[in-house]
Design a protein around this nucleic acid. Structure first.
Lengths: 190, 190
DNA sequence: CGTCTATTTGAATGTACTCAAAAGCGGTGG
DNA sequence: CCACCGCTTTTGAGTACATTCAAATAGACG
């Protein structure tokens, strides 16, 4: 069945009975996205958290000068949203866009709040998900301040080969915190 | 009573009955730390998460060259640990040190795992704590790539006045990802 | 009071950015 | 199917940001 991926994702950390799966299934809205389609616009209230069933997405911030800063990528089997604005139901700072034909499952903020009550195990599930997300961000901060640009690029290529396929170098550069021009020269020199 | 702070911290997100408080109380080990005392050494298995009752701590990474990179600070009413190594019970990458006379409460990894079963509400509590920690780190990443050093320093001073009091400029510089010499010149120029 | 460390200052160097132009590539429409 | 358009990538020159190293000064602590 086609929902295997999401339930497999849940069951990495918690076990679900049939009824619970039913509830979750009905809460998850399937959405097909074309290449470069936008799931969340900066400024919109961020009402959903997204689970990537296939394809890949990118979350980025646009500053006053119109420059894009990629905050995260998400591939198959990952969750993504503007967590700050999702958690507080504020206007989004981030834009979330698909890098290619993708299929996502949308989970609504208020529905999730209800689900936490109906299926308390979900608290555990997202406790573990957020714990991992926190660890990832902390490691990223550590890498940013202790490795050179070329080292960080090499680690990125190693860790996320699937993203390297789909993202442009400009997007990867903005994730690493450098200009595309500089990434280009640094890659050649190596 | 002296445990007010920690229970107040819990009760920001969950409510606890007397018995639950008792259980938690017996799981939390009080520890007095002198200035520059080390709670966790790099390389040690990270068995505890720390709640700061008074004073302030700092977590940092030491690279091959012996350079220190400050990953986070924690003041009164905050939780701190080497989350990566705590969650996986690996040898710590980080060292955690007190900036001043401090009092912390230690919560053991295995005891916490049991407590998650005994008091499922704790899953919710730490779900929210980690969600916030994730959001903080994500905002930090965003600031790092989109603001200048002086702007980031000013924001730091604004957001964490208590830490500015206690941390050296060298430590703050390493948190911002610059050298202390550069922070010094940048502060003067402004 | 002396010692140790933090901070400041400066010069030389390296890293990364800006701006501009050229080359490459992919998609679209005729 | 080809020509064109727009965007990405590369390249280079000039500039700005940040580091290293060294030395002087200032502060903190025993």
């Amino acid at each position: 069945m086609e929902d295997e991926l999401i339930f497999n994702n849940f069951q990495k950390h918690i076990s679900l009975c049939h009824l619970e799966k039913q509830k979750l299934k009905s809460a998850l809205l399937e959405r097909q996205m074309g290449r470069k389609e936008i799931a969340l616009h900066q400024g919109q209230i961020c009402r959903k958290i997204y689970f990537v069933q296939s394809g890949s997405l990118r979350a980025f911030y646009i500053n006053e000068d119109g420059k894009e800063f990629t905050i995260m990528f998400a591939v198959c089997d990952w969750w993504i949203t503007d967590m700050n604005c999702f958690a507080n139901q504020n206007p989004a700072m981030l834009t979330i866009e698909s890098l290619e034909e993708s299929q996502v499952l949308e989970l609504d903020f208020h529905r999730l709040e209800e689900l936490y009550k109906e299926i308390p195990k979900l608290e555990r599930f997202f406790r573990i998900i957020f714990q991992k997300a926190y660890i990832r961000e902390q490691l990223r901060a550590l890498h940013n301040i202790s490795y050179s640009t070329i080292e960080r690029y090499q680690q990125f290529v190693e860790n996320y080969p699937a993203i390297v396929q789909k993202a442009t170098q400009k997007q990867i550069a903005s994730y690493l915190g450098v200009t595309p021009e500089f990434l280009s020269t640094v890659k050649k020199k190596k």
